[in-house]
Amino acid sequence: MSLNFFWVIMHLLIITGFLGSGKTTLLLRLAELAQKQEKKVAILVNEVGEIGIDNQIMKQLGFNVSELLGGCICCSLAGDVIGTLERVQKKYQPDFVLLEPSGAADPRNLMNILAAYKGIPFKSLIKAAIIDSVRLDMLMKVISPLIITTMEQADLILINKADEASSKELDKAYNIALKYMPSNKIFKICAHDEIEPDIIRELLPWIV
């Protein structure tokens, strides 16, 4: 009974975004923050490459990491994600799970897969889409369906690389995001730097 009580308070944050948009960098910032607050963090990371890189860095930094490699959890590894989530629950009993799908994942497919999840319910499930302000204009010309789906499926949009992008690129990214998200759920960030408290509260509303 007491064990189940602890499981019930588990939170899930899914960070979606195209390859190279800054998912891993943001994830590491949030994991560090949660760890500082003495929360137990578990990370599920999915990479399309056959040898994981992000998982090795996370392990170097001392996080509990489960990796899903050599494919994408929205399609070729779809069957693995539910089982891995359940194993993470049992093995770590974390307060907080961070899920990073591959940068090629279709978030709509992922949400369909998660709908089949029959484990202990999450206390909260937040989907944050991170977009690359430097490349967004070009990506919208080449792979707009994936980028649009990523924004449509999210609860909030983070416009990353605000320090690298020109003001024109930032404005353009903001206006594109505005088509899919209300303005109070769009934030400009530099994932390499410290994330502002207001944005942290959106991502981790349970954190003190």
Partner: peptide, 9 residues
């Protein structure tokens, strides 16, 4: 060395 045929996008 790894090579994986993979098409997602």
């Amino acid at each position: 060395e790894g090579k994986k045929e993979f098409v997602c996008i």
